[in-house]
Design a protein around this nucleic acid. Structure first.
Lengths: 148, 148
DNA sequence: GTAGCTGCAAACGATTTGCAGTGTT
DNA sequence: AACACTGCAAATCGTTTGCAGCTAC
């Protein structure tokens, strides 16, 4: 995770976006985040290095990046938005007692679902995206989750 | 769909909730709704018959019903809340060009997923809920969707 | 009678907007 | 130079809250 400056500017340029300091910083912050931060969390994480940046700009930048399919907006069960630099199709685990969102990806699961959806015929619907949403609680909130 | 008054009062009583006119009306309105309405849509649908009811009460009532597991709160990709009187585990299809939410239930899909999750070992996680979220667009927005 | 519920208005948090000024191309 | 982008503050939207009065039990 974490594209260098060249890569980031290249990606922005490829979408015809102006290369501004703010966009670089916001994008890099999101790429570096392993959790799924809110706009405010991104703002907090960059404002010490960029004291003049405004929260509104962070929102606008994230919106722009999402429109250009460089990042994803993720709505949480609480109705707030989080952002995700991963653009490949993957699943999320919402952990209610710690308010975390974990990525969950599994080749086998993707295959199973894709296979299932192919078999079904959804008339008058063009599917743009599908994912499994798992909700749960950590038994021990201080420890991580491992999947075997 | 649509419980009669007796049934509704019975359900409320079984949860130890006071039987108020507002709760009956809100609950029945949600039971009768085939779409997944917002709090405001429920409010609009009942206020002509109940002019003195307040939107805040609708919110409070829905919250209470959800806490008592009589209904579900559903967060949309846009970050707003919708409500669902179906409490069995089912999947949702989000239709972006009409802003609809459709229920989607399929025995086979449930089995496949349950089976998959059983096989996997999520350490330190207790799964409370899982569902498939399908996003798509209607090809013809004026027509329905049929699944075959 | 009392605890719980309602309705109102005000407060709230997250996000968006208008606009004047600034920066990129 | 032109236009897109930023920063600020104010506005907006959906939702929640505080509290006085009302209602079911």
């Amino acid at each position: 995770m974490g594209l260098d400056l060249e890569a980031v500017t290249g990606v922005l340029a490829s979408k015809g976006l102006k290369i501004t300091h703010q966009r670089i910083v916001v994008y890099q912050a999101l790429l570096a985040a392993k959790n799924h931060p809110t706009a405010e969390q991104i703002y907090d994480s960059i404002k010490s290095q960029n004291p003049s940046i405004s929260l509104a700009t962070v929102y606008k930048t994230l919106e722009t990046l999402a429109e250009n399919l460089l990042i994803h907006k993720v709505s949480t069960p609480q109705g707030t938005m989080r952002y995700d630099a991963r653009i490949d199709n993957h699943n999320h685990i919402y952990i209610s007692n710690t308010n975390e969102i974990l990525d969950y990806e599994d080749e086998e699961l993707s295959k199973i679902l894709l296979n299932y959806l192919k078999k079904k015929n959804f008339d008058n619907l063009s599917i743009t995206d599908f994912k499994v949403q798992i909700k749960g609680e950590k038994i021990n909130p201080d420890k991580g989750i491992s999947i075997t």
